[in-house]
């Protein structure tokens, strides 16, 4: 569920990059103030561990597909949320470069989706209040499981939002949410089990690792449940609020919201007003001169019913010819450089 560059608009991509960078800066500052120097190598090596552990896949029962360990909760348990976020961010950066998971612009979104939610919402508001000092393995497993599921659900929902705000996909909100959330519920459940299993395994084999960790500050038992409810409530409000806001506003409202949020006068590519905005682009620039679009007045009208009598054969031909020539030239340049280099 890595977000991809191709589905993003620059506004959404850069906004999330800004948010992610701010979070990295804030966490770095927090770490600098409180850090034990021992953390430097531990964080680095644990990052590599998450990377390697994610490649050890396991079969998901009854589906035949395979899943892997999500790192956010485990890292937060060992290192505390601030260091864990930095580690997750570094793992995703390396994945974006070496595996091309998503791409560089989408990296901001991906760090946000897979870092902020598990470390600062799922761990801080759910796991930590649930697991007081000396909790039973059952309770740890339950907490790891719940926080794993919630973290991933929020991440998946975030992917949906980022895609829709970018307006590159035709997928309507409802369909997309119905596709993404259940799939990630399944993945989250398995990851939750894996996380719970690994935490309990380590805890029974090497309890001192947990005792010496940097996040293990005992919490008073009586506040734990209340904190859990607050955590779940915030998660629910966040999800529900975004959902209802999205559902209730009309397309123009959304456009208005984007304008308010990103300060851009228009996102012409937005789904619901394609025709009018395309026309605008065509008038102002020559991005798509080979497409002979017909002006449609009513954005809500089903466009399929309209006839498209004026598909301009000449213009589309010029587009095809131009494209072939450009591709040919690019390839020619590539091959001739290769040939020249070989001769040298």
């Amino acid at each position: 569920m890595h977000m991809a560059d191709a589905l993003l608009s620059p506004a959404v991509g850069t906004t999330f990059w800004a948010g992610t960078l701010a979070a990295i800066a804030y966490c770095s500052k927090r770490l600098k103030e409180t850090m034990d120097e021992k953390m430097v190598p531990l964080m680095g090596v644990l990052g590599a561990f998450i990377f390697a552990a994610q490649m050890i896949n396991f079969t998901i029962p009854a589906t035949g597909s395979s899943g892997h360990l999500g790192g956010g909760i485990i890292l937060s348990v060992i290192l505390g949320p601030y260091a864990a976020f930095i580690v997750i961010a570094s793992v995703l950066t390396v994945q974006a470069l070496f595996f091309a998971d998503g791409g560089l612009l989408a990296l901001g979104c991906n760090i946000w989706n897979l870092g902020i939610y598990p470390c600062f919402i799922a761990y801080s508001l759910i796991y930590k209040p649930l697991v007081s000092y000396g909790a039973t393995p059952g309770r740890i497993a339950f907490a790891a499981f719940i926080s794993g599921v919630v973290g991933l659900q929020l991440g998946a929902f975030s992917v949906v939002m980022q895609t829709l705000l970018s307006g590159r996909s035709e997928l309507p909100f409802g369909t997309f949410v119905l596709l993404m959330q259940p799939v990630h519920l399944g993945i989250g459940i398995v990851e939750g089990f894996a996380t719970a299993g690994v935490i309990n395994f380590i805890k029974s084999a090497r309890p001192e690792i947990f005792e010496s960790t940097f996040s293990a500050r005992p919490l008073a038992a009586d506040i734990s449940l209340r904190k859990v409810f607050v955590g779940l409530l915030i998660a629910a409000v966040l999800t529900g609020g975004m959902l209802s806001w999205f559902a209730s506003t009309n397309p123009d409202g959304l456009e208005w919201a984007i304008e308010k949020t990103f300060g851009k006068p228009e996102l012409p590519e937005h789904t619901q007003s394609i025709a009018s905005s395309l026309k605008k682009i065509q008038e102002s620039t020559s991005f798509l001169p080979e497409y002979a679009f017909k002006k449609t007045e009513n954005t809500e009208a089903p466009k399929k019913e309209e006839a498209w009598p004026n598909v301009d054969a000449g213009k589309s031909l010029s587009g095809v010819v131009g494209s072939s020539i450009v591709i040919g030239m690019v390839l020619l340049i590539g091959f001739s450089i290769k040939a020249m280099r070989r001769r040298i």
């Binding site: 993003l8 012409p268 798509l288 497409y291 494209s323 690019v330 091959f335 450089i337």
Partner: peptide, 27 residues
């Protein structure tokens, strides 16, 4: 990347010249 992504939803021909960059890097 920002330039490529900033192309509107239906852009095709405008994107093609950008392939020059990866080809140059590859070669």
């Amino acid at each position: 990347i920002v330039a490529v992504v900033s192309f509107p939803k239906y852009a095709i021909s405008g994107l093609l010249p950008f392939f020059l960059f990866p080809v140059l890097f590859l070669a």
